[in-house]
Amino acid sequence: MRLRGLLWFNAVFSIMPVALWASAVVEGRVELPKSHTAPVQAKRYEIVTKGGVLSTQPPLAVVYLDGAFPKLASLPTKQVAQKDLTFVPALLPVPVGTKVEFPNLDETYHNIFSYSPAKRFDLGRYRPEERPIPTQVFDKLGLVTLRCDIHEHMRGLILVLNTPYFVMTDTDGHFRLSGLPAGRYTLKAWIDSRTTREKPVELKNDQTLHIDFP
């Protein structure tokens, strides 16, 4: 009976989110770069083209707590869709080991690929209704640039992190990262492929820190 209780305790403990007993909060603002220009779609040899302007994707940053954290027992599957000839979301932060699905929500073919050292793959061409949805497991840290072999202008990013504590800023750069464990860490703000800012932080339970990345 005692053994069964211990097993239950272990099982519940292992799947319980770390955030339940971690309670520090960091909030602040990241200075984001100027908004990008919407991409121009090359339609030179498509004899049939649809109208429409591709949407501007505002710059966003990913703020994360860097440190040696235990791996999560299970990671939810994430999605990067292809919709209206863009990647949605354009930037996806995931913990290492996450499986990402790439559903095609357009009426046309896409051919998603990446030559990034963190993940090299090519999904080939697949129909929107095709099942199972093509997936990839991102098991190496780093930045993965997603592209489409058919639509040159399409570009998306997956940031593979070794921490479960991360959040995306809003379009003004504001962020709030909650449920953090107490201790000394480095707080990082990933802004683009060449810019990651960082600040050392000391977190205490039930404390809210305010940190800006100018």
């Binding site: 990008h36 220009t37 919407a38 991409p39 121009v40 090359a42 302007v53 501007t56």
Partner: peptide, 17 residues
């Protein structure tokens, strides 16, 4: 990115490639 320009609130966009 440097070779893509836009004006008039993105209504005029041009790209050199």
């Amino acid at each position: 990115t440097a070779l893509t320009i836009s004006a008039f609130h993105d209504n005029l966009r041009a790209r050199l490639s």
